[in-house]
């Protein structure tokens, strides 16, 4: 990423006036809280410098590794679904008639309106045998109560399903935007060279949108490690103790308000923040999607 300084830019101090309010907010809700959390993570209960003790001790908490294993399973399913289905569906939609493609995109995108807690609650109904529209599938799986559907082994799949249901449409729209930038001539040339649907998709379109696929995967990975709403609402619905610390973010919250251990909680939140920062830096430096300047 190159930030070029352009000659037209006016070397005026009045620029500060335009950015100052935003910078103040950036400090209050971005930089200061991160600094505060980092400071907590590096100090002991008695407010003395503790080095990495909190990081090491929180790692040795018996709930730490399982939480990251849960997230790992969830991410494996979710990212696979994203890369296979979002890319596949976008390529299929791109070769359809414009109106049909737009209609499908709208259907895929609509669940985004229920992002967050609403989609989890809706899915809890959908997973509840009896009144569920997927009753026949739930019966076939032998589930009789919501508790059966929410068996611990099912949770990574269920969270991946919910995340895919609410988020895939937005990514399909992003991929569509990327595919729309491919010049017509190039596709015509491929056609003239005798490339069929499959070869055009794999050898022409796919290489041209691979930066977007990388962006989607890294971004989804970073967001997925932060998983909170889905396991939290399921834990509230099931009142199962094991679900209260299902994801690392839940564990961090649990440690701080149940055990009053703000230092461990801060250490875990810094762990996750470092993952997010690395992902953001990789997207910024390596994909070349976010350019500065014209």
């Amino acid at each position: 990423m190159a930030i070029r300084r352009k000659p037209q830019l006016r070397p005026r101090k009045s620029g500060y006036l335009f950015v100052a309010p935003y910078v103040a907010l950036l400090v209050v809700v971005g930089i200061y809280p991160v600094g505060y959390a980092a400071n907590l993570a590096l100090t002991s209960f008695t407010a003395h410098f503790a080095g990495l003790t909190n990081f090491i001790n929180s790692y040795h908490d018996y709930q730490f590794v399982p939480a990251f294993e849960n997230i790992g399973k969830f991410l494996a399913i979710w990212l696979t679904a994203l890369v296979v289905l979002v890319v596949g569906l976008s390529l299929v939609l791109h070769s359809l008639n414009r109106r049909v493609s737009a209609a499908f995109r709208f259907v895929f995108y609509l669940p985004a309106a229920l992002a967050g807690s609403a989609s989890v609650m809706l899915w809890l109904f959908v997973l509840q045998p009896g009144d569920s529209p997927w009753n026949f599938i739930l019966r076939w799986l032998g589930y009789k109560t919501l508790g059966d559907s929410l068996a611990p082994g099912n949770l990574p799949v269920i969270f991946a399903l919910i995340a895919f249901w609410t988020g895939a449409g937005s990514w399909i729209v992003v991929m569509h935007g990327a595919l729309a930038t491919i010049p017509e001539d190039l596709l015509e040339a491929a056609k003239l060279d005798g490339a069929g649907w499959w070869r055009t998709a794999v050898h022409v379109k796919l290489p041209l949108i691979q930066r977007w696929i990388a962006y989607m995967l890294i971004g989804a990975f970073a967001a997925g490690t932060q998983l909170f709403v889905e396991p939290q609402l399921v834990s509230e619905a099931t009142a199962a103790a094991s679900n209260q610390t299902w994801s690392p973010n839940q564990l961090a919250v649990f440690l701080s308000f149940h055990l009053d251990n703000f230092n461990y909680a801060a250490a875990i939140s810094i762990d996750l923040l470092v993952v997010a920062l690395i992902c953001a830096a990789v997207i910024l430096m390596r994909t070349g999607l976010f350019k500065v300047g014209h």
Binding site: L26, V29, G30, P33, V34, Y36, A37, G219, A222, A223, Q226, F228, N249, A252, V253, S256, A265, A266, S269, L272, L273, A276, L277, C279, A280, I283, L284, F290
Partner: peptide, 12 residues
């Protein structure tokens, strides 16, 4: 800040 998930800042 725009590329990190907003949830990453919640606990801090």
């Amino acid at each position: 800040a725009m590329l990190i998930p907003s949830t990453a800042l919640v606990l801090p």
